[in-house]
């Protein structure tokens, strides 16, 4: 059960998802300022309502769904402003589009986290392997020994492995320290 009752917990959730949610909202062609407002409002709302979630996935689903709904509302109202297709209902269904966009965002979010935990050579090498390059190619590109590439990559993987587990269930942290 996740309860966001103290500010530190909200802080953790916020920093884990804020950028991703704001970026996800760009699927609705809303400008950055407005997107940030939308997502910030949601976090304030989350705090005010003191909602509880059975697990992290439920919280995450709630966040993406709420962002989507609010964006649809904004689009609807903007449409009205421009007096365009007032009676046209925006179909909230399009489930698979929603899923696809959330999937892209979740992957992006995790890539960003990974890239930003690594520094220097580790980061370079992982970026290149994410781009699909093999060890020897990376070695040539970075002008280092293939063996060195392997060694650094192994270290980086170790960090990433830990990170991935923490990423998927980062809220374990919130749950266990209580």
């Amino acid at each position: 059960m996740i309860e966001l009752k103290n500010k530190d917990e909200l802080d953790v959730v916020f920093h884990a998802y804020y950028k991703a949610l704001v970026n996800y909202a760009s699927n609705f062609s809303i400008n950055l300022d407005e997107r940030e407002d939308i997502v910030q409002d949601i976090f304030v709302y989350l705090w005010k309502q003191q909602l509880e979630f059975p697990n992290e996935a439920a919280l995450k689903a709630y966040l993406y769904t709420t962002v989507r709904n609010r964006c649809l509302n904004v689009i609807k109202h903007n449409k009205v402003k421009s007096d365009f297709q007032i009676s046209q209902n925006i179909d909230p269904v399009e489930d698979s589009l929603f899923q696809k966009q959330v999937l892209e965002e979740e992957i992006t979010r995790q890539l960003y986290k990974i890239i930003n935990t690594l520094k220097g050579r580790k980061r370079e090498i992982i970026l290149l392997s994410l781009k699909g390059m093999k060890g020897p190619e990376i070695a040539t590109k970075l002008k280092i020994e293939a063996q060195t590439v392997r060694a650094i990559r192994t270290q980086a993987y170790k960090i990433i492995k830990e990170k991935i587990n923490a990423l998927g269930y980062f809220l374990n942290f919130v749950l266990t320290y209580r």
Partner: peptide, 24 residues
């Protein structure tokens, strides 16, 4: 993967610390 990696660049434009201060 390439496209998704590019998407991460958008994240750098978003200032989550400033946003947190506002919310806070």
């Amino acid at each position: 993967t390439q496209t998704l990696l590019k998407r991460t660049h958008h994240y750098s434009l978003i200032d989550s610390n400033a946003a947190w201060r506002k919310i806070s």
